[in-house]
């Protein structure tokens, strides 16, 4: 298995922001993604998030991989909504009938005569854009942050230090456990087991047996790690200091303020003016 890298490849204005500012961006974009059902707004938000990822230095290869892996799921979503989403979109649009984009030939078995509607298509687009935005926000905010700064940022947000430390330390141990799993899978193959050649039940058992030595080995390691943590004075008490501190600079403070304002605006406009409600572009 190829172990992926989790860090952005270059510094950028976004990566220099304090982690709290990035979380504010995350929150604001998430609120907008959830509230907006207008496919134009949803797609615009998705493209803006994608642009932010590229500008922040997230690897193009990683973004391409994400898109490629999600494509079948999104296609299924589009087809599902286009063919089957009837009652819900009629209620949203207030239309009496759906607007067909195309109809499947009647001679086709089972699906013959089914209508792919414009309303369903646009709603499907909205759902795809929403999902992609929510997915892209995670690497945008986390990959652009040095794990050392992550801890401090979380602590400054009053997250208890043991929890903040647990998060970044998980990132530290991930490569180690990843290699462990790869070794165990290899060890199984060297005992004559190729899971892909087995039936479903045998495959469940074989794959699952990979996890057993990994988890037991991890618990041995955990005991060692506990000894190390205690030996280095880790106790979660107050008065802990930090080599790298996290100070809110002007850019970060402004970002947080802007995001708070953006959330308020999105919510008010959604409630008062229905901005973001589902519409079919072109006014059909």
């Amino acid at each position: 298995m190829n172990r992926p890298s989790l860090q952005a490849t270059r510094a950028s204005a976004f990566s220099r922001l304090d982690f709290r500012a990035k979380l504010a961006v995350f929150a604001a974009a998430s609120v907008a993604a959830v509230l907006w059902n207008d496919p134009r707004l949803s797609l615009g938000l998705m493209l803006a998030t994608l642009g932010a990822c590229l500008g922040a230095g997230i690897s193009r290869g990683y973004l391409w991989l994400m898109g490629r892996l999600m494509a079948p799921f999104f296609l299924l979503l589009l087809l599902t909504h286009g063919f089957f989403n009837v009652q819900y979109v009629l209620r949203l649009t207030g239309h009496a009938h759906l607007t067909p984009l195309f109809t499947l030939p009647a001679r086709l078995p089972l699906v013959g005569g089914m209508i792919f509607s414009a309303e369903g298509f646009y709603y499907g687009l909205n759902v795809i854009a929403k999902s992609m935005t929510l997915l892209l926000l995670v690497p945008l905010c986390v990959f652009t942050t040095d794990p050392n700064n992550l801890v401090v940022g979380l602590v400054r947000m009053r997250v208890p230090y043991p929890f903040a430390f647990a998060f970044t330390s998980t990132l530290r141990f991930f490569p180690l456990l990843f290699d462990e799993v790869a070794s165990v899978i290899e060890a199984q193959r060297l005992r004559g087991f190729a899971a892909e050649e087995l039936g479903p039940v045998a495959r469940v058992r074989t794959y699952a047996k990979v996890a057993v030595p990994v988890i037991l080995g991890a618990l041995f390691k955990a005991q060692q790690v506990e000894v190390v943590l205690q030996s280095r004075g880790f106790s979660g008490r107050r008065g802990r200091t930090y080599l790298h501190d996290s100070r809110l600079g002007a850019a970060s403070a402004a970002t947080i303020a802007l995001c708070a304002l953006a959330v308020a605006v999105v919510v008010v406009l959604r409630i008062r003016l229905h901005l973001g409600a589902f519409v079919v572009p072109g006014g059909t």
Binding site: F174, L177, L219, G236
Partner: peptide
């Protein structure tokens, strides 16, 4: 010792890493 809900932090960390890997 510092813990997360009573569980030693080290155990939470290492098992979280296991879960992360199995997500792959």
């Amino acid at each position: 010792s510092a813990s997360v809900g009573g569980a030693p932090v080290a155990y939470v960390i290492v098992l979280a890493a296991v879960v992360a890997v199995l997500s792959f």
